[in-house]
């Protein structure tokens, strides 16, 4: 371990990267050097202030020393930089649960579930909600667990006890709110057309694209999405959120949540992707995928 620490120390001097800093923190902690581990986290945050995982590791170190409030502050700081840092919500929930602050712990787990559905989180939530209702029979928590954020196609799997009935519009014509969101996206300057597809690359809804082109965009876009997810796996990049291909004569942008529903946009090459993303995420939200 010492040689690995030394190798990473040299590496971080020459090629400072957030992942190397956090790896150094983990190795120092494993070697029993808690102060050193905390120092690596702080160095990481100085160099990469938006690297959320460093906050989570720092909080873990602080919590291990009994500095509960410091740990919660670190997690809050991490969430401020990266609101989708699901690990921070989970860590905060555990700290709060241990401190007997069950309602706050439950709230954190619910936030984690909104970001990413996870059976472990749901199980923990059931456990905590159960213990809360045990102490307070009238607790409203048990009925307030959010539904799994995967309202795509009807599934044969049994619904989790907390899951709300899945009412998916995807096999039916778009509801008015969804159609409006799609209209707004398609009406943005420089947008040639939009398609919404399912995980299999079938068109759910489309706007502004000629017949045939929407199906090609959805089907081949699904192939690109699968390739993008596989490429991310090799780098530890997590679940796919978006991909884009820019050419001299146009660009294709795709935004997804969990790969179940994807909004695909065909646009002029000069259109700013950030503007498209805002509108596309609205469509995903209206479809219930976000």
């Amino acid at each position: 371990m010492e040689s690995e620490l030394e190798r990473l120390r040299k590496k971080v001097e020459n090629f400072p990267s957030a992942s190397t800093f956090t790896r150094l923190a983990e190795l120092s902690h494993d070697a029993g050097d808690a102060a050193g581990a905390e120092e690596w986290c702080r160095k990481c945050l100085r160099a990469f202030p938006r690297h959320g995982m460093a906050y989570v590791i720092l909080a873990d170190l602080q919590n291990a020393k009994g500095r509960t409030e410091d740990a919660l502050k670190s997690l809050a700081a991490g969430l401020e930089k990266d609101p989708r840092l699901v690990q921070a919500h989970r860590a905060a929930a555990e700290i709060l649960a241990k401190a007997g602050r069950t309602p706050e712990a439950v709230a954190e787990l619910k936030k984690a579930l909104v970001i990413k559905d996870d059976e472990q989180v749901r199980a923990r939530l059931r456990e905590l909600a159960g213990s809360a209702s045990g102490s307070r029979p009238a607790s409203p928590l048990a009925g307030a667990v959010p539904a799994a954020p995967r309202p795509t196609v009807p599934t044969a799997a049994p619904a989790a006890p907390f899951a709300q009935p899945v009412t998916t519009p995807f096999s039916r014509p778009a509801a008015p709110a969804q159609a409006r969101a799609l209209d707004h996206l398609a009406a943005e300057p420089g947008i040639r057309g939009v398609a919404v597809s399912d995980a299999s690359g079938r068109v759910i809804s489309t706007k502004g694209l000629p017949a045939g082109q929407d199906e090609a965009l959805a089907a081949l876009g699904a192939e690109v999405g699968r390739g993008a997810a596989m490429a991310l796996t090799t780098t530890g990049g997590g679940g796919l959120g978006s991909w884009s291909v820019v050419t001299g004569s146009g660009q294709i942008l795709a935004f997804t949540r969990g790969g179940q529903v994807t909004v695909l946009v065909l646009a002029e090459p000069t259109v700013r992707p950030a503007m498209i993303e805002l509108r596309a995420r609205q469509v995903l939200a209206e479809l219930g995928a976000a």
Partner: peptide, 12 residues
């Protein structure tokens, strides 16, 4: 042209 992939924990 450029191809960009964004994941929850990084991108390419």
């Amino acid at each position: 042209g450029p191809l960009h992939v964004q994941g929850e924990l990084g991108g390419i």
